[in-house]
């Protein structure tokens, strides 16, 4: 069931178009990600949903009700800020109780719900502390607790993991996903980090220059990017340019290269490094460099007539050395042709 429906939303700041006709639907209970580089309009869209920004054109509805006319403090939507925005003069418990007090709930109910959520985020022992006395990961848990205790229809998370160090990040990533599953609230994460989006979200909308490039689940997004931008932005890719033909791409230098098609005219063939084998018969080249990453070896192959080295990933230890002559190949279903 569709919970949030965004339709043809446009927003301009002076001469800059932040959102250029964005449309997308988010289902009830979904973990959705808005992914894109900085300046792609994802933050503007988030602020429109939260009620801190207005739109020039288009509609936003939540469960069928027009959201644009509801002021921020009356929306059944909560936002977890990138800076967490914890109130420094209030204790952890008081921070979490703040939103419930605004609803005019009785004291007993507030205390019970605060205790409950503190327990859930594993911070029951820190209820009386001030935000400044907590670690980054703990602050994030408080910010999250403060938002979910309101039981919103929709929870917005602005770059939720960006302020955390690497180790805590991985932990929180897993935890966020579990938590979303447990509380059953619809999550919308805004992020520029494709790994963050891929690992947590059920579906991802990739934004670029204020427009949606593709909306799909992570596997589809990775395996069948719809545009050059998506193919380039998500994961590593090797690109070859030419003209789209049936079952592949026709190039001037390498002749026919096989791939899944669907487009016509000038096009790019994109193939992932892990799909390229060193035992094929499509291209010939010489190994430029080999780097070993433990479970993975990255091989860069110089192919005459191609201006960037072709990247190849091999499982385990490298089986080639720099200077070796190699032949590259891939299966047609592992490569995709996108519009140039």
């Amino acid at each position: 069931m569709t919970l949030l429906s965004i339709n043809g939303v446009r927003r301009k700041f002076g001469d800059v178009t932040a959102l250029d006709g964005v449309s997308l639907d988010i289902a009830e209970g979904e973990f959705f990600a808005l992914l894109g580089p900085s300046g792609c309009g994802k933050t503007t869209l988030l602020r429109i949903l939260a009620g801190f920004e207005t739109l020039d054109e288009g509609t936003v509805t939540l469960a069928g009700d027009d959201l644009t006319k509801v002021p921020a403090h009356r929306r059944p939507i909560n936002l977890m800020f990138q800076s967490y925005a914890l109130f420094p003069h209030l204790s952890v418990a008081a921070n979490i109780a703040y939103g419930l007090q605004r609803e005019g709930l009785p004291k007993g109910v507030i205390k019970q719900r605060v205790d409950e959520v503190l327990e859930r985020v594993g911070l029951a022992h820190a209820a009386k502390r001030r935000p400044q006395q907590l670690s980054g990961g703990q602050r994030q848990r408080v910010a999250l607790a403060r938002a979910i205790v309101k039981r919103p229809r929709l929870l917005l998370l602005d770059e939720p993991l960006s302020a955390l160090d690497r180790k805590v990040r991985a932990e929180m990533q897993l935890w966020l996903k579990q938590l979303q599953h447990e509380v059953g609230i619809t999550f919308v994460v805004v992020t520029h980090d494709q790994e963050e989006a891929m690992s947590m979200a059920d579906r991802i909308a990739v934004l670029n220059h204020g427009a949606v490039e593709q909306i799909a689940d992570p596997v589809t997004l990775y395996g069948s990017p719809a545009t050059h931008f998506v193919a380039d932005f998500i994961g590593a890719n090797n690109f070859f340019s030419g003209t789209a033909v049936d079952d592949g791409l026709s190039t001037e230098v390498f002749g026919f290269l096989p791939a899944r098609g669907g487009v016509t005219g000038p096009a790019l063939l994109a193939v992932r490094p892990e799909q390229v084998s060193l035992t094929g018969d499509l291209l010939t080249g010489r190994v430029l460099d080999v780097s070993f990453y433990g479970g993975l070896s990255r091989v860069a192959v110089l192919v005459a007539g191609h201006d960037t080295p072709v990247l190849v990933h091999q499982h385990g230890a490298p089986r080639v050395a720099a200077g070796d002559a190699v032949k590259l190949g891939w299966a047609a279903e592992d490569a995709v042709v996108v519009r140039a």
């Binding site: 939260a50 801190f52 921020a72 403090h73 703040y98 605004r102």
Partner: peptide
């Protein structure tokens, strides 16, 4: 002071005066 504190307050259901 973090300018998002006031936005956080509004987000949590407080009006301008509160």
């Amino acid at each position: 002071t973090d300018p998002s504190l006031e936005e956080a307050s509004r987000d949590l259901g407080a009006n301008g005066f509160t």
